[in-house]
Design a protein around this nucleic acid. Structure first.
Length: 246
DNA sequence: GCGACAG
DNA sequence: ATCTTGTCGC
């Protein structure tokens, strides 16, 4: 049944259509016009359905471009600003970027972050000449209560390999990773490993890495390491953050 | 009921 | 996330 989300001219059209279909299947009756105008309850129901389509195994072709996604807010959170930075791999040099602004239409609720940030991210992605081969997202992948963090949700919508790179923990338990760069420990929840806690630079607070979509646990960590240079955050995220701020 | 809680 | 300068430490 693959691909679930055909990406054609108008790069993300398939993804948006899919979302609308899921929403209609998930809810009894709605009178909203915007596809992302969901209630928290509906959002949770949608996550439970989408989760079944996740593939947490490596499914990447040759990686020539790696992107970082960053979202920020302006005007007292009324405006959502998304930035995407596409880097060439393995040079990690900026290749292309895009920024999109939209009125914020969903509150920040732990566990439902994707519903607040993804709409703007999709608009930014549509401005790219082509989708990147791999995307690193701020936040969690499957290290989520329903195993559908923002990285997983986005990966599913655009049918691309994604990795969740969180600066703090949402769920899961773990030991303290070694102090040296590259050291890591597994992140577990309810008896299953859902990611890892990785020291991306000696002596700094570790990052929470988890597969988003089309990506295995070990690969997720390895790809993040490959995108690191001398800072705590991978170059992808640093570029996206830089472009979004100024 | 209480505490935790990505960005 | 955002409000914000200097400052402590490797």
């Amino acid at each position: 049944m693959r691909p679930l989300f055909p990406v054609g001219p108008g790069i993300l059209r398939g993804a948006v259509v899919f979302f609308k279909q899921r929403r209609m299947e998930t809810t009894v009756q709605l009178h909203h016009s915007h596809p992302w105008d969901l209630s928290p309850k509906e959002a949770i129901a949608l996550q439970r359905q989408l989760r079944a389509h996740l593939r947490i195994e490596d499914d990447l072709g040759e990686v020539r471009t790696v992107a970082g996604v960053d979202v920020g807010f302006e005007q007292n959170n009324t405006i959502t600003r998304a930035a995407v930075a596409v880097l060439d791999y393995p040079s990690l040099q900026l290749r292309e970027s895009a920024i999109a602004r939209q009125p914020t239409r969903f509150p920040y609720i732990p566990g439902l972050l994707s519903f607040r940030e993804i709409p703007a991210v999709l608009e930014a992605l549509e401005q790219l000449s082509e989708l990147p081969d791999l995307l690193l997202c701020d936040g969690q992948g499957i290290a989520h209560p329903r195993r559908l963090g923002i990285a997983s949700h986005l990966g599913l919508l655009i049918d691309r390999p994604t990795i969740g790179v969180g600066k703090s923990r949402l769920i899961g338990t773990h030991d303290e990773p070694g102090r040296e760069k590259g050291q890591w420990v597994p992140l577990s929840d309810k008896g299953e490993v859902i990611g890892c806690v990785l020291r991306t630079r000696t002596g700094v607070k570790p990052l929470y890495i988890s597969p988003g979509h089309r990506m295995g646990l070990d690969s997720a960590r390895e790809w993040v390491v490959r995108c690191l240079t001398r800072y705590r955050l991978p170059e992808t995220t640093r570029w996206a953050h830089r472009l979004a701020s100024g």
